[in-house]
């Protein structure tokens, strides 16, 4: 059994002068709920489109479920939602699902009942899709993605347009699907969503991979303290040279020092030995959002 379900190698997509995806190399292990995190316009949907054969890569390669370049056989083992789910507006939710089930060469009314119930649409199954709210459309999209019990799910912003309760339900559902052993690639620009649902994450910005790893490691709040001393310049030299300190930098009229919280008291002793005295020290709370903005370089540049 192949342990890597999705592998991209130097995957690149260029639209004229715009580089949407830039030499992206990812590995999604089997059974993981893998987050593809990035701000709007980072290239997440383009990556999904290339994996699904909707968008032609400019260069690079990928394999899906052990098949180079994906292909129809691989796609039949995949369930996907890309952006806002699109269905026939004049058909009911049930008839839409029945149509796409037929496209897969299947005809199973019980599966339709089960999926409509699972996503909470059983009561509106016979209403026309055009009467659905955005949240209901997302739910139908999830039911569509689950048709045929796929082993891999590609979900692009699956909670987009949902109210908080709906988002929580869908996240629970995704977690449950992950626990069943399915591999899930979840694209999102919502940090808390990725943090709550995913095992591992790749953060992309401007089409490039910024960082990849376990969610617990990458998205935990950084442990930083804000320090003011009698001689900040000298203190910065001392702290930068210290093995106990992960990072130190000057910010405004103070220093920002990254150090494990339980060891922050050692700072005072370290500096006083060098005759630099701490006048003020306080933990600095760096939010996930701040961290994300810092790491993607979007801080101060975002218009959305």
């Amino acid at each position: 059994m192949n342990d890597v379900v999705i592998q991209t190698t130097e995957l690149t997509k260029r639209y004229g002068r715009v580089l949407a995806v830039d030499r992206l190399s990812l590995q999604v292990p089997r059974g993981h709920v893998f987050g593809l995190l990035g701000p709007n316009g980072a290239g997440k949907t383009t990556v999904m489109g290339m994996l699904l054969g909707l968008v032609r890569p400019t260069s690079g390669s990928f394999s899906l479920l052990g098949t180079n370049g994906g292909g129809r056989d691989a796609l039949r083992r995949i369930g996907a939602i890309v952006e806002t789910p699109a269905f026939y507006p004049y058909l009911s939710g049930r008839r839409n699902l029945a149509y796409f089930q037929g496209v897969m060469g299947r005809n199973d009314a019980r599966e339709l009942d089960r999926l409509l119930d699972l996503v909470g649409l059983a009561g509106r199954a016979n209403d026309a899709f055009k009467t659905y709210s955005l949240g209901m459309k997302q739910r139908l999209g999830l039911a569509y993605a689950l048709l045929g019990d796929p082993e891999l799910l590609l979900l692009d912003e699956p909670t987009n347009g949902m109210d908080p309760a709906g988002m929580a339900e869908v996240r629970d559902l995704i977690r449950d699907l992950g626990r069943e052993g399915r591999t899930i690639l979840l694209s999102s620009h919502l940090l808390n969503e990725v943090e709550q649902v995913c095992d591992s994450v790749a953060i992309i910005a401007r089409g490039r991979l910024v960082v990849q790893g376990d969610v617990a490691d990458l998205l935990r709040p950084q442990e930083q303290v804000r320090v003011r001393t009698t001689d900040d310049a000298r203190a910065l030299e001392i702290l930068t040279a210290s093995a106990e300190v992960e990072a130190a930098s000057a910010a405004d009229d103070a220093l920002v020092v990254t150090i494990a919280h339980e060891r922050s008291s050692e700072l005072t002793a370290l500096l006083s030995k060098q005759e630099v005295y701490v006048t003020e020290i306080a933990p600095l709370q760096v939010s996930l959002e701040q961290y994300f903005l810092d790491i993607t370089g979007e801080n101060g540049e975002r218009s959305e």
Binding site: L52, G53, L75, V82, T84, A86, F87, Y88, M104
Partner: peptide
Amino acid sequence: GWGTLRTALTKGTG
């Protein structure tokens, strides 16, 4: 216009 072509193609329809 409806985007349903993409929905059909992602189910492996040639």
